[in-house]
Simulated scan of single mutants.
Amino acid sequence: MDIVHAFSIDNIRFIIEGFYMTLKVALISIILSFIVGCVVGTLRYTKMPVVSPILGIGVELIRNLPLLLIIFFARFALPDIGIKLGPMNATIVALTLFEGAMIAEIVRSGLLSIDKGQIEAARSSGLGYVQTLWHIVMPQGLRRMLPPLVSQFISLLKDTSLAIVISLPELMHHAKIVIGQSYSYTMPILFLVAVLYFAVNYALSLAARRMEARIVQ
């Protein structure tokens, strides 16, 4: 184990560049998948004719496919129909679809968990369906969705490492290159990678706890 040379300035800089790519892809994917998940989950909750069943089929199909397969599909299959995506965009598309399907179920379950009596009371007081959904159901549902949503975001961040198979220059990809310089770098570099992943995911967990506490208040 060669800690001194493994943590050279060049190696550390290279690892940080990969970490930046990981955070960039994760952040974009989190935002997009959250939007997709909220829209799809809400539409499924409303049980719109035709739309809800079709979305349900799509969600179940994506949820039951391996994320790795979806990444390969976005990178190597879409060009066959004229859609060419680079490693970063292919990863973002794959993560958005996969995590969006997961979040859609979280959102739908959160909305369904609200007592129907509250909905009926709101409707009888004169609120329309959309107003009831926005002012009564959504605020309470969000409180219950927050823990599983954060867990899903943490999973998304970790899942970016799968993009190593399509040569996305993210954290694990750069770590693999550094380790390839010398076998003695394996332990210190992997330890550094673990620390970086843990730091971000733990920060997400802490932020979620504070947000949940504020919502409860």
Rank of each mutant, 00 (worst) to 15 (best):
I57G: 00
G56D: 14
S109E: 06
M102T: 14
A104M: 02
I62Q: 02
I103S: 07
F73G: 08
A77Q: 07
A74Y: 05
G58P: 00
I57F: 00
F98R: 00
A101S: 15
L68Y: 12
I62H: 01
L67I: 13
L95G: 02
I92L: 08
I62P: 07
L85V: 10
I106L: 10
I62G: 08
K84N: 15
A74I: 12
A101R: 01
E60P: 00
S109A: 10
I62C: 13
D80Y: 11
L69D: 04
A74T: 15
P87F: 08
I106S: 03
P79K: 11
L95D: 09
P66A: 13
T96P: 11
N89F: 11
A90W: 15
F98A: 09
L97V: 01
I81W: 03
P87Q: 07
L95K: 10
L78N: 06
R75K: 14
A90H: 13
P66N: 11
G58S: 08
F76S: 14
L61F: 09
L68N: 04
E60R: 01
G56I: 04
M88Y: 04
N64P: 08
R63P: 06
L68C: 06
L78A: 07
I81Q: 07
L85K: 08
R75C: 01
G82W: 07
S109T: 01
I70G: 01
T96S: 09
E99N: 15
M88L: 14
V107W: 03
F98W: 08
S109G: 04
V93H: 07
G56S: 14
F73H: 11
G82S: 06
K84S: 14
G82P: 05
L68R: 03
T91D: 13
F73D: 09
E105F: 02
N89L: 13
F72K: 06
G100P: 02
I71K: 09
L97D: 05
M102E: 11
A90K: 12
V93R: 05
I62D: 06
L97T: 03
E60D: 14
I71R: 11
R108T: 10
